[in-house]
Design a protein around this nucleic acid. Structure first.
Lengths: 174, 174
DNA sequence: GTATAACGCTACGAAGCCGTAGCGACGATT
DNA sequence: AATCGTCGCTACGGCTTCGTAGCGTTATAC
């Protein structure tokens, strides 16, 4: 049921998530879905909550390698057109409907979690400007990948992780 | 007609753009819309093309001030929930439908144009690492704003433009 | 064995959208 | 004055979704 919802969300987009369609693909009766999720938003939230996988947390003992591993790990997510479309649709839906803001927030937190760990460890080692808040740091760590994937998705392959990490470090270091 | 389409796109989202709805709001007969735009995609492309405004191009003679002015100029666009939602929906649509990729590309080019001018002038003045491609530079210039608006839209106000420019310059300078 | 709860199935009226057809009105061209 | 092109209006059949109702089936608990 939630699996079918997540599948539709991924393949056909958020507008294709209807009670009828979920019933069709999941093999569950439409009435049953209504009994569990009286509103479409609840169904969406539950489906997204149940399908958020947290990426691995690298621990190499130094910031540079951790960042490289992290960017490498999440790069495939940006290369996937359907996945990118789904994320964009979810964020757009959250921007339009306050009810879905928590959904988006949880989704982001799951994706950002590992980065937070990396960041804290590096800060303890003195590799990061002590005045730099982690929110501001994320802007520059995820920024390049996101911008690249949004504005120039076809040039995403050209992005050199090593060089990008160098540039990120310019911003983060004390 | 195109104005009505752009308006729907902005207010209610891309899913709300239907022939019936455009006819209703524009006062134009549905058949007439079909005569001009046989497919919905053509209508979308025309509407977006006709409503892309290019921001001002600052020219202060130095990169720092130009960047500051530019970021200040585009910040309000990110603060607008509907506008952000619309952009996200357009990008999502482009990711799903190849026919709409040009639409997105044109939209991006209009928004990025001024940045390109700023970038070239700064490079001529020697304020930018000569090995740095402009595509890579954009990742770090627009990145912070975009990431902030996507992941933490409620903390967008906290973003200090001056400090952000400082950090961007760390990446761009030779 | 029986009560309770959950599920499946069918069907419904209302609403919206699609794409097209038919017909009349208007204005410009020539 | 006649012609051509464009537009408006109405209406249609087909399709999908919504949210609910009614009723039968299954399984678990006690």
């Amino acid at each position: 049921m939630l699996r079918a919802t997540a599948d539709i969300l991924y393949r056909d987009g958020i507008h294709a998530v209807t009670y009828d369609e979920v019933a069709r693909r999941s093999g569950v009766a439409k009435t049953t879905i209504y009994r569990h999720f009286p509103s479409r938003n609840q169904l969406l939230v539950a489906a997204v909550d149940g399908s958020t996988a947290t990426p691995l947390i690298p621990d190499n003992g130094n910031l540079r390698d951790d960042l490289r591993d992290f960017l490498r790990a999440i790069l495939p997510m940006f290369l996937n057109d359907d996945l990118r479309a789904m994320s964009l649709e979810l964020m757009a839906a959250a921007a339009r409907d306050p009810e879905l803001q928590d959904l988006h927030r949880a989704n982001v937190r799951a994706r950002i979690g590992p980065l937070s760990t990396i960041f804290k460890r590096a800060k303890d080692r003195g590799e990061i400007d002590p005045d730099l808040a982690y929110v501001d740091a994320f802007d520059f760590i995820e920024g390049p990948l996101i911008v690249r994937s949004l504005l120039y998705p076809d040039k995403l392959d050209d992005l050199d992780i090593e060089i990008t990490v160098d540039r990120i470090l310019r911003v983060l270091s004390p």
